[in-house]
């Protein structure tokens, strides 16, 4: 179960440029100006996700969907508000994060697994399953550097989707590799989502959200515009987008 309570997130756009010593001294000697370039990516967002629910997020670019997922995944801390999470989270946000190109596929399975928070025993146990799914058995001891991008994606996908988490965060349904693998990976994702876990799902495909989600949160400019039944909200969202 996840409870998001009045979460707000402020970005300070001006501060980001303050990188160098030169800039530091310029700012230091200039009369202090009030930072005006504040940007609220999220303001006062609250909702609840029950166990086993699949909840989708819609909204146009910059509505705050990815920021919200990052906050729930623990990557960022909200400026205001808090989040209660019960259960272990698997953020399936980025494939292959933490791959080391100089290591072999075998070594990368362990490294990437560790990065994703798997235990040693879990990886050992699931090792064959990962290898079989990725169809890379013959390339296990080849450095990933020599892989094609499709092979890297296949390996990354297989490692990321081996989990059985209580809460799954999905940013777009991923379909990678060649046509055959694309279908296989899409099936696997849908299996994971429909497998009884709690899922937070962001997608630009309204059809996928309609198909997979129970409930939808519609974000607009960092605020919750509407929450409700997937079918209704999606239809309304589609209408609104097409109007423009």
């Amino acid at each position: 179960m996840i409870k998001v309570n009045n979460v707000s997130m402020k970005f300070n756009l001006g501060v980001e440029k303050n990188f160098s010593l030169k800039q530091f001294f310029i700012d230091f000697f200039k009369a202090k100006k009030k930072e005006k370039s504040e940007f609220w990516a999220l303001s006062d967002v609250s909702f609840e996700v029950k166990k086993g629910q699949v909840i989708g997020f819609v909204g146009n670019n910059g509505a705050g969907k990815s920021t919200l997922l990052k906050i729930i995944a623990g990557v960022m801390k909200p400026t205001k508000g808090n989040i209660e999470i019960y259960g272990n989270i698997c953020p399936m946000i980025e494939l292959g994060a933490g791959f080391d190109m100089d290591l072999t596929a075998r070594e990368n399975i362990y490294l990437n697994g560790a990065v994703l928070g798997y235990s040693k025993n879990f990886i050992k146990e699931k090792f064959d399953e990962i290898v079989n799914f990725s169809e890379l058995k013959d390339f296990l001891d080849v450095p990933v550097r020599n892989f094609s991008s499709g092979m890297v994606a296949r390996l990354a996908f297989s490692i990321a989707t081996i989990v059985d988490p209580e809460i799954l965060i999905v940013d777009e349904i991923l379909s990678v590799g060649d046509l055959a693998f694309q279908q296989k990976s899409e099936r696997k994702m849908k299996e994971l989502i429909n497998g009884g876990t709690t899922v937070l799902f962001v997608s630009h495909s309204v059809n996928q959200i309609k198909e997979l989600c129970d409930k939808v949160v519609w974000l607009q400019k960092g605020k919750v515009f509407k929450i409700g039944n997937a079918e209704e909200i999606c239809t309304e969202y589609e209408k609104k987008v097409l109007e423009k």
Binding site: D100, D102, E107, Y110, L111, A114, V115, K120
Partner: peptide, 21 residues
């Protein structure tokens, strides 16, 4: 405890990469 495996993996990665070639 949770992250000791990651720590171990990161260290062994550094070793492998350092001497690999």
């Amino acid at each position: 405890k949770k992250y000791s495996f990651l720590l171990q993996q990161l260290i062994s990665r550094d070793f492998k990469v350092k001497y690999k070639r």
